Simulated scan of single mutants.
Amino acid sequence: MSTPVLRARPRPTAGPLPILAACLLWGTTGTASSFAPDSAPPAAVGAAGLVLGGLLLLLTGRGARDVLRAADPRLLLLGAVTVAGYALAFYPAVARTGVAVATTVALATAPIVLGVRARPLLTLVAVAGCAVLVLGGGEAHVDLVGVALALVAGLSYAAYSVVCAHLIGLGHPSRAVVGAVFGGASALTAPVLVVLGTGWLATPAGLGVVAHLALFTTFLAYLLFGLGLRHTDAATATTLTLAEPAVAAVLGVVVLHERLPLASWLGMAVLAVALAALSRPA
């Protein structure tokens, strides 16, 4: 009589759950940024959050120095450049073409580039649901420069996801990889922040917004995203991040008292169904 083989249950932290948790935090970005002082340039707000959050990730990323010594420096540089590129491109994109168009272009680019081959139907359904959710009001303003910046942000995010997933797949701890890459991004972005201006950081509103962006939408969110990349491929991970605009939309209704049209609620429902399916193993 053969002894039955006991299979270990998957850990709660495995799979897409940390990525969806990161999306909950990323979804607060727009609401938090709306409280920034009027004197704060949009790119400076994102840069400040990245500089501080990236430094925290580097200082607390146990093994980050080992990654910096052992990993391919070209990959580390690419990861740092793409992280910095996302922050510096996305916020100006929002300022030029609005939250709706910038979010749709930036967040839909990475899943289309990475996920359409792996799980094409679910990926396209998720992207369509995201587009209807964000653009359902029919009041979108399209600015070609803003769209181009959002596209740069989306491609940067896709490249960052692939780089980090590759480094983690080589056996480096996820926290160390995220710390090394974001530490580099912090160093690259700091001079840009100085040029853009830091006077607004001396205000209580400026400090509060940057503290939130650094601690929650950068530090904690990217730790969770890095953990998720250990158990989820980059294509699925970037598609799951389409949950972010759903969180942002709900916060807009609850906190900022915005009105969400019926089409947007229907888009959110389609997106939720697609993400639930993507959360299951292929």
Rank of each mutant, 00 (worst) to 15 (best):
Y157I: 00
A272E: 04
T236D: 06
R69Q: 08
V177G: 04
Y222M: 02
L133W: 13
T236E: 01
G46A: 09
A176W: 11
A249I: 14
V163G: 06
P37F: 04
P173A: 01
R11H: 13
L52G: 06
V51E: 07
S33F: 05
V81T: 14
R259D: 10
R259W: 12
L167N: 05
L124W: 08
A235Q: 06
T97E: 08
V113F: 10
L215N: 09
C23G: 01
L58F: 15
V152H: 11
H141E: 03
A126K: 10
A214W: 11
L6F: 15
A234W: 07
L25P: 10
A221W: 06
A36L: 01
A71F: 12
G208Q: 05
F182I: 00
G183W: 07
P42H: 13
A180C: 00
P73A: 04
V253Y: 05
L223W: 11
V132A: 04
L144H: 15
C23P: 03
A71H: 11
A95E: 12
A43S: 06
T189M: 03
G206L: 00
L151N: 12
T109W: 07
V254T: 12
T31L: 00
R9H: 14
A108K: 12
L55T: 15
R175Y: 09
R62N: 03
L201D: 04
L278M: 08
T241H: 02
L271A: 09
V273S: 15
S174I: 02
R7S: 15
L213R: 04
F35K: 01
A269C: 10
R280V: 06
L24S: 14
S161A: 13
G199D: 05
L122E: 05
Y160H: 11
L242G: 01
G206K: 02
H172A: 03
A64E: 08
G183E: 07
V209R: 04
L213D: 11
T31A: 03
F182N: 05
S161N: 08
L24M: 13
A180F: 15
F225R: 03
V51I: 11
P41H: 11
V101S: 07
A126Y: 02
A274Y: 05
L149D: 14
G129H: 11
A84H: 09
G136P: 14
G267I: 06
G53N: 11
A108H: 02
A131G: 10
L266E: 01
T238G: 01
G15M: 01
V273L: 12
L122A: 14
T104V: 11
A176I: 06
V134T: 10
A71R: 09
L20Y: 14
A8Q: 15
L223E: 00
D66L: 00
L133K: 05
Y160I: 00
V195S: 12
A80F: 12
L124M: 08
R230N: 00
T232Q: 02
T3R: 08
F219Y: 15
G115M: 04
T236N: 00
R117A: 00
L114G: 09
P41C: 08
V113R: 07
D143Q: 02
A205K: 00
A214Y: 10
G115R: 04
G228A: 05
L256Y: 10
H166Q: 14
A70P: 10
A131L: 09
T104F: 07
A158P: 06
L124T: 08
A93V: 08
M268P: 06
A32V: 11
G197V: 07
V195W: 15
A276C: 12
V116P: 12
G46H: 06
H212R: 04
E139C: 02
L20T: 12
